[in-house]
């Protein structure tokens, strides 16, 4: 019996630009099951990033419901959403978004500062996460001392170090060459397959999307097709 992790019901999202009201979503419905690996594709302006933002609790719908493990998150306060994100979501960004002044280990440790773990426990968890992304020998390196692929692997370690249920990836290979992109995508696949992480990935790249179990095509705020692996 599969468990629904995300459930979006009749979600509407409007923006105003000057006097104009832009309807990004006008009644979007979506279910994402635990352990799924969903790729969302679509042209620019189709609403991919807005959807990812709403799933990640960094943006809220104008109307409709978003539930996570059965609990509504669309009506949480800013502070409650921050706590929810810290517990449940790991973000992976296109440009890695690492803190340039911090070492790889310190970057990975950031989400653990929001937990009650001791310094020793945090250090152990950071070492495990960096080992998992094959960067155990780069703990003291600053982002500028690493390649793009290595930086993205640090970002993945940061996303998984607090063991969230969900990974949200915004064009995670958009800034990488094909070979490195394949490494990163294989790593995401491994996290999905062997560690049970539910993943939602926004991408323009059809080759990247093929690593997912399910590909949703979004256009003008509606899912127009779905491919299942």
């Amino acid at each position: 019996m599969s468990e629904t992790l995300f459930d979006l019901k009749n979600v509407r999202k409007y923006f105003t630009r000057g006097a104009e009201e832009i309807h990004v979503f006008d009644g979007l419905n979506l279910e994402i099951e635990k352990g799924d690996f969903v790729a969302i594709m679509g042209p620019s302006g189709s609403g991919k990033t807005t959807l990812l933002n709403m799933l990640g609790g960094v943006d809220q719908p104008t109307d409709g419901e978003i539930s996570f493990s059965g609990d509504r998150i669309d009506n949480l306060s800013e502070g409650a959403l921050a706590n929810w994100r810290a517990t449940n979501i790991g973000f992976i960004f296109q440009f890695y978004n690492l803190m340039p002044m911090l070492s790889a280990a310190r970057n990975v440790e950031l989400p653990l500062l929001l937990t009650n773990l001791s310094a020793k426990q945090r250090k152990e968890n950071v070492a495990t996460a960096l080992e998992l992304v094959d960067l155990a020998d780069r703990t003291t390196h600053k982002p500028r001392e690493m390649s793009g692929g290595q930086q993205q692997r640090v970002a993945i370690a940061r996303a998984i170090v607090s063991d969230p249920k969900m990974l949200l990836c915004d064009e995670p290979t958009g800034d990488l060459d094909r070979e490195t992109a394949d490494e990163i995508l294989s790593m995401l696949q491994l996290l999905n397959r062997d560690f049970g992480k539910t993943i939602v990935m926004v991408t323009h790249d059809p080759l990247a999307a093929k690593y997912a179990k399910r590909i949703l095509h979004l256009d003008k705020g509606n899912f127009i097709s779905e491919e299942v692996d």
């Binding site: 921050a82 706590n83 517990t87 973000f91 440009f95 803190m99 950031l110 929001l114």
Partner: peptide
């Protein structure tokens, strides 16, 4: 980007 990323991670 740094501030927003920390906030996305869950920093207050």
């Amino acid at each position: 980007t740094e501030i927003a990323t920390l906030r996305a991670i869950g920093f207050s």
